[in-house]
């Protein structure tokens, strides 16, 4: 279980406009590249001081590679990070204001309290 790493993926993609587009267009390739090249970079350190031990669990990698935000919710990824990034990628595909946000809520309707723990 590496909720932290899932959050780190969402966080680092969300803040980079080019990565947002790349993840929208090629989720599988973006996740593969990110896990190989970026997962172990400590964000305020040079790349010569990277970590050595971070990797996704298989279900986490699959959820990210398939844009499966209900699965990310179920595993306790931080819901603010998931929502913000997925709005950036998919709000544009809906005509009505908040169309994607409401679809997102509907897709999560299966979940009731208590939600998955988001503590990292």
């Amino acid at each position: 279980m590496s909720k932290y790493l899932v959050n780190k993926f969402l966080f680092t993609v969300d803040r980079d406009p080019a990565l947002v587009e790349r993840y929208r267009d090629d989720p599988r390739g973006t996740v593969e590249w990110w896990e190989a090249e970026r997962a172990n970079v400590i964000l305020n350190c040079t790349t010569t001081e990277s970590s050595t031990w971070l990797r996704f669990d298989d279900d986490e990698r699959d959820a990210l590679m398939t844009h499966d935000y209900p699965a990310l919710f179920a595993m306790g990824a931080h819901p603010f990070l998931t929502l913000t990034l997925f709005i950036a990628m998919f709000e544009r595909d809906y005509d009505e204001p908040l169309g994607f946000q409401l679809e997102y809520a509907r897709k999560l309707a299966q979940f009731s309290l208590p939600y998955a723990d988001i503590t990292t």
Partner: peptide
């Protein structure tokens, strides 16, 4: 609620 089933009601 943000990023959950009760959002944007």
């Amino acid at each position: 609620e943000l990023g959950g089933p009760r959002q944007f009601g």
